[in-house]
């Protein structure tokens, strides 16, 4: 099982995403923004950071990187893709997920341990969680306020595509407390919190994030057998 981890100039949490992949005994494969080769991976993580400085809009430049064209194509064919934080923003800019992230309501960067409820346990990245499970995962961003048109939000809610929801307080003003969403087929998931920073209670608030990476092992196995 190979999980690709993309590095753009300005990507920060790629080492962490790779560590999380290794923690579930997957092989972490580095992917470079300027290549279009997915190097035979079974799933892709678009990690957090400030790609190209995020100076225009978060993710706005990264979506045009050669590697992203390949990721978009692979995702359309059903490859599991996870966008974390800046990666979520990139997936939205790339059109794999609807909506956009705005500046946090407090206008500050917020780094804190945040409780989330897992609302959908049928996506490629969440099958290992119990329905309604509450997990403790760090958030750290300044542009984390998810928003989309009223119609899109209605659609996401109606189709069960809100995957993670903030509980015990909304840290950034996200609409409907949305922390993460998925594509209609549940293969592409994006979330603002960082499951890769919750794989060991030594360096994170919990190891709840491991469930995300274990889930994708199952998802790619079932793809092979199907």
């Amino acid at each position: 099982m190979k999980i690709g981890v993309i590095t753009f100039p300005g990507t920060l949490d790629d080492v962490d995403a790779a560590r999380a992949a290794r923690a579930v005994e997957a092989e972490a494969v580095p992917l470079w923004h300027a290549d279009d080769d997915l190097r035979g991976v079974d799933a892709v993580v678009v990690p957090g950071g400030f790609s190209y400085g995020d100076y225009l809009r978060a993710g706005a430049i990264a979506r045009f990187a050669p590697i992203m064209q390949s990721v978009v194509d692979a995702a359309r064919r059903g490859m599991p893709v996870l966008g974390i934080c800046n990666g979520f923003q990139i997936l939205c800019e790339a059109g794999l997920l609807p909506g956009v992230m705005l500046r946090n309501v407090g206008l500050h960067f917020v780094c804190k341990d945040q409780w989330l409820r897992v609302e959908n346990t049928e996506t490629a990245w969440t099958t290992r969680f119990e329905p309604g499970a509450e997990i403790l995962i760090p958030i750290k961003n300044i542009d984390g306020r998810y928003t989309a048109s009223a119609e899109t939000v209605r659609e996401l809610e109606a189709e069960g595509r809100v995957v993670f929801r903030y509980v015990e307080g909304n840290p950034n003003g996200s609409i409907n407390d949305i922390a993460g969403i998925c594509s209609p087929d549940g293969r592409v998931v994006g979330l603002m919190p960082h499951p890769e920073h919750a794989i060991d209670a030594l360096t994170g608030p919990s190891d709840d994030g491991l469930g995300v990476f274990y889930s994708v092992l199952d998802a790619t196995r079932s793809l092979v057998t199907a």
Binding site: D16, F109, V110, C111, K140, H194, G204
Partner: peptide, 14 residues
């Protein structure tokens, strides 16, 4: 103050 700083990045903060 400190919640405006990333304390997790690189995954080695104990």
């Amino acid at each position: 103050v400190t919640s405006q700083y990333d304390r997790y990045v690189r995954g080695n903060t104990v």
